[in-house]
Design a protein around this nucleic acid. Structure first.
Lengths: 346, 346
DNA sequence: GTTAGCACTCGTTTGATTGGAGTGCTAACA
DNA sequence: TGTTAGCACTCCAATCAAACGAGTGCTAAC
C-alpha cells in the first residue's frame, strides 16, 4: 500500500500527540487536532491502514494507537524535516572557557541533561591512534620517578614509578632523551615489544632499573589507551517517563549509567557501524546496539577534536523522545565543542 | 521504666526478625522464635512496654511492631556486641595490587557493594593540608608549559599553561628552581597572595609571562585542593529494598549518588563531628547529617593514608540494615586499606 | 507473673459493577 | 467512490463493598 500525503499527515499528528502525552491517541483527537477537516470515522479508516502497514499499533482493542518503532523511524527520517526547522533557536550554551577538558565535558553533559530532561553521556576522546608529543621523567626521590606523558590534544598522563634501586640524575637525563627521541610521534599501538627491547639495548648496559623504567613508561602509554572516560548526567531523568521507571527497567538503566561500561560499549558499536559518523544518529528501540537500551531511544553525535580524535555525545530517553529538540541541541552543542577544541589546540 | 534482660532479648529478637523480613513482626512470631518459652500474650505485654519506652512502634493498630530509630540505636550500641562476634570471618578481600590509587578505590567500593548489597561510596584523600613535594615545569611548546605538581602521598596534579608570548628554556629552568625552593613543603592554604607577589618580584623584572605562570601554578595547587574525589558503586542496590525504592525517594537517592556532592557534604560533616573518627560510625535515619538520607542508615569508617591524610568509606542502605555484617566488612576493609597505603608510601 | 480466650481494629485482597474512551462495521449520503 | 453518522461492542480503569486475616488489648482464670 502507498503511504499517501494524507496518511503521512495523520501519522505525524499521531506521533506528535503521543510524544506530548505519552498516552495512546484516538481518532477523535486527530480529527480535531489536524486541519484536515476529516471526521473521526475517516481517520479511523486511515488508522486501520497505517496499522496494517506497521507504522502504529494498538496496545489492546478499544485503545488508541501508539507509534511502532517503524513509525518513529519514519517520523525521524522523513516527517520531521519536511519543514518546522525554521525557528528552533537554541541559545548558545554557556560553556565556561576552561582549560581542563574534563571539566568542559562534565559541564556539557550537565547542561544537555537539564536542557532536554533526558539522561546524557559524553565520552572523552579515545587515545587510540593519538601520538605521543612529549615525555618527561623526573626524579621525585632517589627511589622514585614520575613519568609525565603528553599526547596530541594535550591530554596528560602521569605515572609514579617506584624503583628497586636508586637512580642518579644523570641517568634520568639520558633516559629522558632516549624516550623522547624514540617514542615521540608514535601512537601507543606502534610501541611494539621489539621497539622496547631495542630501547633497552640502546640505554646501554644490563641495568635492571632502566629496563623497568622503560617498561613502566611503555605501559603507561599503552595501558590506558583503551579506556575512554565516560561522563554522565541526569540519569534520574528516566524517572520522569513512566514507561521506563518501573523498578526493574529503571534499575537496569541506572546501573548502566553507573557502571559506564555498557555506555562505552554502545559508543564503540555506533562508531564502528557507520563512517559518516559526523552526522547525528538515532537508534530507536531495538535498533540500539546494546540490549539494555531496547526500550529507549538513543541519539548520538560525535564531535571532533582534530587530529583524528573523536568523542561522542549521547542522549538516552524514552522512545517518545522529543527528537527534534534533541537533535537540534546536539547539533549546536557539537558545533560549539568542535570550535572550542579547535581554538584550544592552538 | 527499666530495660530488663528479658526486654532486651525480646527487642533484639524483634529487630533481627525485622531486619530479615522487612515486615512488622507480631507477638506470635517472637513467642516461637526465641527460646524464652513465653506465650504470645506475655510477649504482647512486653511489647507494649517497649513501645511505651520508644524502642519500637506500630505502623497502625493491628499491625506488628517495627523498630524505631531509638530501637536501632540500642541494637547497634548494646545488643549487637553482647556476643555473636565469634565467627564473622570475612575473607580478606582480593584487592589487586596496583599503583594507581584511583583504581584501588574503585575496586574497593565495587567489592564492598557486591559483598553487602548496599550502595557504597569512598572518598579519596582530601588534599587539604597536604604539602607540596615536587614541582616541575616543562616546556611542551614555546608557547605552552606543562606544570606537574606532586604532593605528599604521591598525588599528581598537572596543568597545561598556555602563554601569550614565547618563553625560553633558560627562564623555565629558573622558574623551576624558584617554584621548588619557595613552595616545597607548603600546604596549599599556606600559599598566600603575599607569597605569590614576593615570588613574582624575585623572579625579577616585570615579565608578564613569568607572572602568569606563577599564578597558574598557584591556582593549580590551590584550586583543586578543595575537591575530593568520590567513587560510588551499587547505587541500584537500593531497588532491593522496597522502603527506599518508590520512585520519589529512589530518584532523590540515586541523584545524590550521581552528583556526588551530597555525599561529599555528608563526609565532611561526619568528619567534623567527631575526632575519634578512626572508629566506625553509624547514623540511623534522622541522625544522618544530610536530609537526603533521612530514611536510610549510613555507616562510615575512615581509613588512614599516613601524613594526616584520611579518606572515608561509607555504606548507605535501609534502616533495617545488616549492621553486624556491614560493620565487620568495613572494619576488615579499613585495615586492609591502611596496610596497602602504608606499604605503598615507602 | 503467666496464659488462654475473645472482641475488636484495620490494612489487604477479592470480586463485582460501572463508566468511558475508543474501535469496527454498516448504512446512508454527496 | 470517498466521507460521515450511528451504534454495538470491547476492554481498561476506577470504585466500592465484602470477606479475610494478622495482630492487638483486655479480662479473667491459673
Amino acid at each position: 500500500m502507498e503511504l499517501g500525503e494524507r496518511k503521512k499527515t495523520i501519522l505525524k499528528a499521531i506521533i506528535q500527540t503521543y510524544l506530548e502525552t505519552g498516552e495512546p491517541v484516538g481518532s477523535r483527537t486527530i480529527s480535531k487536532y489536524t486541519d484536515l477537516n476529516l471526521s473521526s470515522a475517516t481517520i479511523r479508516n486511515e488508522m486501520a491502514d497505517l496499522e496494517e502497514m506497521g507504522y502504529i499499533l494498538q496496545p489492546h482493542t478499544s485503545a488508541g494507537r501508539i507509534p511502532s518503532d517503524l513509525g518513529y523511524r519514519m517520523y525521524v527520517d522523513e516527517l520531521i524535516q519536511e519543514k518546522d526547522r525554521e525557528v528552533s533557536q537554541i541559545q548558545e550554551l554557556m560553556i565556561q572557557k576552561t582549560d581542563r577538558m574534563e571539566k568542559v565535558l562534565k559541564q556539557v553533559v550537565r547542561i544537555l541533561a537539564s536542557n532536554t530532561n533526558y539522561a546524557t553521556m559524553i565520552t572523552g576522546p579515545s587515545l587510540h591512534h593519538t601520538k605521543v608529543k612529549f615525555i618527561q621523567l623526573s626524579r621525585v626521590h632517589e627511589m622514585q620517578l614520575l613519568a609525565v606523558i603528553v599526547v596530541e590534544g594535550n591530554i596528560v598522563r602521569n605515572q609514579i614509578i617506584d624503583l628497586d634501586e636508586p637512580i642518579d640524575e644523570d641517568r634520568v637525563l639520558r633516559l629522558n632523551l632516549l624516550l623522547n627521541t624514540q617514542l615521540n610521534g608514535l601512537a601507543s599501538e606502534e610501541i611494539s615489544l621489539g621497539l622496547i627491547t631495542k630501547m633497552k639495548e640502546e640505554a646501554g648496559i644490563h641495568s635492571g632499573v632502566v629496563a623497568s623504567v622503560i617498561d613502566a613508561v611503555a605501559e603507561a602509554i599503552a595501558g590506558d589507551s583503551e579506556e575512554v572516560p565516560v561522563y554522565t548526567s541526569g540519569a534520574t531523568n528516566i524517572f520522569k517517563y513512566p514507561e521506563l521507571s518501573d523498578s526493574g527497567r529503571a534499575s537496569e538503566l541506572i546501573s548502566a549509567f553507573e557502571e559506564k561500561e555498557v555506555l562505552a560499549d554502545m559508543i564503540r558499536e555506533t562508531i564502528g557501524e557507520k563512517n559518516d559518523s559526523t552526522e547525528i544518529q538515532v537508534y530507536i528501540g531495538n535498533e540500539s546496539p546494546v540490549q539494555t537500551m531496547k526500550d529507549c531511544s538513543v541519539v548520538t553525535a560525535s564531535y571532533d577534536l582534530g587530529k583524528g580524535m573523536k568523542g561522542t555525545i549521547g542522549i538516552i530517553g524514552p522512545k517518545r523522545m522529543d527528537y527534534e529538540n534533541v537533535m537540534d541541541n546536539l547539533k549546536t552543542l557539537k558545533n560549539q565543542l568542535d570550535r572550542i577544541f579547535r581554538d584550544n589546540d592552538g
